[in-house]
């Protein structure tokens, strides 16, 4: 059957949560038969095209206390229904978390960023999700809540495959927290799409710490090159503890590109992704190093 995207043909029961308890109670009751709806920019597309058919829709954008950004000495805490646009407009994100800022800026159109949430970007678990590589390099922690309580999961353990996360059917992602960034740290994000504002063909984030001419710690994450967004420890290890030079950046970029296992799909070929990932990683490393106050 051809899809008519003019309408939403699917039928479901609509549940509008006004408190976290209410949302969790419904999730506990309906589990896999329910889907959480935030901005709907992924979910409604998937429902229109018949990829998912929930019996219950639990709308969470009206849940009090899930839409916030809090910046202090402990770092940054972001409520799950915070929109991409709000993140983009937050000074603490722009100045302290360049990779996240650049990722959000690169995403979609203004209208989609007004609707879409960070929780939805993670919950959708696309290998191309643009907020994922930045969160991986910052070592973000996700707070997952259910009626039984809450648990904290490192973002690295969250993604299991395309569209798959470690969220249990009765769990809701409520908060993303990022550790504080020191004055000698720097991060960056780069993405290659077909056109501006496109879903990524490939995206990469870097975060590093500097002491003098040396890089003391470094994290690198790629998206769209594997079933989940991934870190590349092979390249990270080459940089950590070393004096940063152009040559070393090139060597690490090569190692990073060799370590990823891109596939060919309708957005790009494997060969193309391999080539371009080396160039992008080198660019991202230079940007992060310079933001950390390093010279080349």
């Amino acid at each position: 059957m051809a899809t008519d995207t003019r309408v939403l043909a699917a039928e479901f029961q609509y549940l509008e949560a006004h408190s976290l308890d209410e949302a969790l109670a419904w999730l506990g009751q309906y589990g896999t038969r329910a889907r959480v709806l935030a901005g709907g920019t992924d979910l409604l597309v998937k429902m229109k095209t018949g990829q998912v058919q929930p019996e219950y829709i639990i709308y969470i954008k009206k849940v009090a206390g899930l839409d916030y950004i809090q910046a202090d000495e402990a770092g940054l805490r972001i409520g799950a229904t915070t929109t991409l646009r709000k993140l983009e407009g937050c000074a603490a994100v722009k100045t302290g978390y360049s990779a996240l800022y650049e990722a959000v800026r690169s995403m979609a159109a203004t209208a989609i960023r007004n609707m879409g949430t960070i929780g939805g970007n993670l919950g959708n678990a696309s290998p191309a999700a643009d907020t994922a590589p930045p969160l991986l390099v910052y070592g973000a922690t996700l707070k997952l809540a259910s009626q039984a309580g809450t648990r904290l999961v490192p973002v690295e353990e969250f993604f299991l495959g395309p569209g798959k996360t470690c969220l249990a059917p009765e769990e809701l992602l409520t908060e993303i927290s990022l550790p504080p960034q020191g004055s000698e740290s720097g991060s960056s994000f780069l993405k290659l799409g077909r056109v501006a504002a496109d879903i990524a063909k490939i995206n990469v984030a870097v975060s590093l710490q500097r002491s003098g001419r040396n890089c003391t710690a470094c994290r690198i994450a790629f998206g769209s090159v594997a079933p989940t967004p991934i870190r590349v420890p092979e390249a990270e290890a080459l940089l950590a503890g070393q004096e940063i030079t152009e040559d070393l950046i090139e060597t690490a970029a090569q190692a990073g590109a060799a370590a990823i296992k891109p596939i060919s799909d309708n957005r790009s070929t494997r060969e193309y992704r391999l080539k371009v990932s080396r160039v992008m990683l080198a660019e991202a490393l230079r940007a992060a190093w310079q933001r950390a106050g390093g010279v080349l």
Binding site: Y14, L37, T41, A109, A111, N114, M115
Partner: peptide, 22 residues
């Protein structure tokens, strides 16, 4: 599908896509 923005309306002053809003 959210790709063209021909369906844009303002919700509380912010542009959003009416084709993806219940």
């Amino acid at each position: 599908l959210g790709e063209c923005a021909a369906c844009t309306v303002l919700v509380n002053g912010q542009p959003m896509l009416a084709c993806l809003i219940l």
